[in-house]
Simulated assay, not measured.
Amino acid sequence: MSKNVTRRRVMTLAAAVAVALTAAACGDGGSGPAVPGTPGGQKVAQSVFDAAPVASDAEIPAGSTMDMIRKRGHLIVGGSLDAPLLSQQNPTTGEIEGFDADMAKLLAKYIIGKPEVKTVTIGTQTREAMLQAKSVDAVFQTYTITPQRATQVAFAGPYLTSGLAVAVRKDETGIKSVKDLAGKTVIVGANTPAVTALPEHAPGSKQVAFATDPQAVQALVQKRGDAYVQDFTLLASDAKANPAIKVVGDPFTTEAYGIGLTREDAQFKEFVNNWLRKIQADGTWAKVWESTLGSVVEGGKPTPPALGSVEGS
Rank of each mutant, 00 (worst) to 15 (best):
L220Q: 12
P91K: 04
L160S: 02
V208D: 05
V310T: 05
L86H: 06
D265S: 02
A20Q: 13
V77N: 08
F49K: 03
R263C: 01
R7P: 05
V310Q: 11
D282N: 15
S309H: 07
T146W: 14
Q152V: 00
E128C: 00
F232G: 04
L81Y: 13
A15K: 10
V221W: 14
G113N: 08
T144Y: 13
L21P: 10
M1V: 00
F210E: 08
T38W: 12
A154P: 03
A15D: 07
K71E: 12
R72P: 04
Y110S: 07
T92H: 06
K240R: 14
T144I: 12
P305W: 07
A182P: 02
G258Q: 12
V217T: 07
V35R: 15
T192M: 10
G98P: 04
V248A: 11
T12H: 14
S237A: 14
G94E: 09
P158H: 08
I187L: 15
I175Y: 15
S295P: 10
T144D: 14
A182C: 01
I259R: 14
Q148M: 11
K269E: 10
A16C: 07
Q207P: 05
I259E: 08
T253D: 08
P53G: 04
I112Q: 14
D213G: 01
G27V: 00
K114W: 01
A286Q: 13
V208Y: 09
V19S: 14
K118I: 00
P243F: 02
A194R: 08
V247S: 11
T146L: 11
E97A: 03
R149Y: 06
K3C: 00
T262L: 09
L13K: 12
S295Y: 09
A16P: 01
D238A: 11
T254L: 06
R149M: 08
L75I: 01
R127Q: 11
R127S: 02
G308C: 00
D50H: 06
S162W: 02
Y228D: 03
V195D: 11
S135V: 05
D238C: 03
L164F: 04
G113D: 06
T196Q: 15
Y110E: 06
N242T: 02
A156V: 00
Q230N: 15
A24H: 14
K301R: 13
I60D: 15
G98L: 05
I76G: 08
G225H: 12
T6N: 11
I187A: 08
K184N: 13
L164Y: 05
A108D: 07
T212V: 03
L293K: 15
V166A: 11
L181P: 10
P91I: 02
L276F: 09
K134C: 03
K43D: 06
F140T: 01
L220T: 02
G260L: 07
R263Y: 03
T192N: 13
I175S: 15
W275T: 00
K301W: 04
Q267H: 05
K240L: 09
G258I: 02
A281C: 05
D67I: 01
T212P: 06
V77R: 06
D57H: 14
I60E: 15
F268W: 12
I76Y: 14
S56R: 12
Q152Y: 06
V153A: 02
M11F: 07
Y143I: 00
V139Q: 07
A129I: 01
G98Y: 03
